[in-house]
């Protein structure tokens, strides 16, 4: 395997991981499959694009075009992506969680509601922004950096580093902070968490916002290589869902491992000349289906105890 493939694989794994972890955390703590994750992705991409239109001249006027300016721009983009994702997550909480979380058959209902949100968001984006694709400013610059003698494209390096940092922050936050511990408690044992005085509602809000922010970040990072468009969320959503499924819904280590496996599979299949890009998706899904038939609870079952499906 060449180093280029390796880096490419890591890059893809980082983005898929962000999507899959969001879906996984939301399922295990709230019991909701978020089909509007793709809509969050697209909406955050557009929000960041809108912000970049406003911020670019401002930053250029203030800091010129030096390194400071590009760092400021990058920070603005990431912040706007995270912020827009979190706000969208809050919206999902208001529409798909708060009104129905006590009714029967919540899992299917929330799935339907989030599907409707997804449908509506894509159409709204189409309505306001049109089907044209938009390019986000390159926040990591265009050149290559040499690390240990390996030349890496800046955007790939940036994506990998930013994702790794953010995941570290999320994991530490989940393990250390009070709210994070509450979320972890809900993931492990929802009834027990409720009995020990953790409010289900007010724990669900930060969870939806956090997962929304993760999708927003994924949108900013993926938009370094592809464009922002209203339907851009569909493929990341499906990949995120299937990777979360592969990792065993609800398990964070499983989702990370699934993302790495799928990312590398994509990079490797894409680099083999006689298979090429056209068989990437095919090979990925074949792999996922095979794993799921052998292990219905996904990879997470190997790593830790995943939560029983609430639907059962």
């Amino acid at each position: 395997m060449s180093t280029v493939t390796l880096i490419h694989g890591l890059n893809l794994a980082a983005i898929y991981g962000l999507m899959a972890i969001g879906i996984s955390i939301l399922w295990s703590s709230v019991g909701m499959i978020n089909m509007a994750h793709g809509a969050t992705f697209a909406a955050s991409g557009y929000a960041a694009w809108q912000v970049s239109l406003i911020a670019q001249p401002l930053i250029a006027a203030w800091l010129g075009t030096g390194l400071d300016a590009s760092i400021a721009m990058g920070a603005t983009m990431i912040a706007s992506g995270l912020g827009a994702g979190a706000i969208f997550g809050g919206l999902i909480f208001l529409l798909a969680y708060l009104p129905i979380h006590e009714k029967a058959n919540f899992a299917v209902r929330s799935l339907i509601v989030t599907l409707a949100i997804n449908l509506a968001t894509v159409q709204l984006l189409l309505y306001f922004f049109g089907p044209r694709q938009r390019a986000l400013p390159k926040i990591f610059g265009l050149g290559r950096t040499e690390i240990l003698g390996i030349p890496i494209r800046n955007d790939q390096l940036g994506t990998i580093v930013a994702t790794a940092l953010l995941m570290l922050v999320v994991v530490i936050w989940l393990k250390r902070s009070r709210k994070g511990l509450e979320i972890t408690a809900m993931m492990q044992n929802p009834e027990g968490a409720v009995l020990s005085g953790i409010s289900v509602r007010w724990t669900a809000l930060p969870v939806t916002m956090l997962t929304g922010a993760l999708a927003g970040l994924a949108a900013i990072l993926l938009s370094q290589t592809v464009f922002v468009s209203p339907t851009a969320g569909a493929l990341p959503l499906i990949k995120g869902l299937t990777i979360a499924l592969l990792g065993g819904l609800g398990s964070i280590p499983g989702a990370i491992m699934g993302a790495i496996l799928i990312g590398f599979l994509e990079a490797i299949v894409g680099s083999i000349s006689f298979l090429g890009q056209r068989y990437v998706l095919f090979s990925q899904f074949l792999f996922i289906i095979t794993v799921l038939i052998i292990r219905p609870r996904g990879l997470g079952g190997l790593l830790d105890q995943t939560r029983e499906s609430r639907n059962a």
Binding site: I33, V108, I238, L241, L245, I288, I289, P296
Partner: peptide
């Protein structure tokens, strides 16, 4: 697979 797991798989 049960329930929603199967639904997501069919989506794939």
């Amino acid at each position: 697979l049960d329930g929603l797991y199967f639904a997501l798989l069919t989506l794939g």
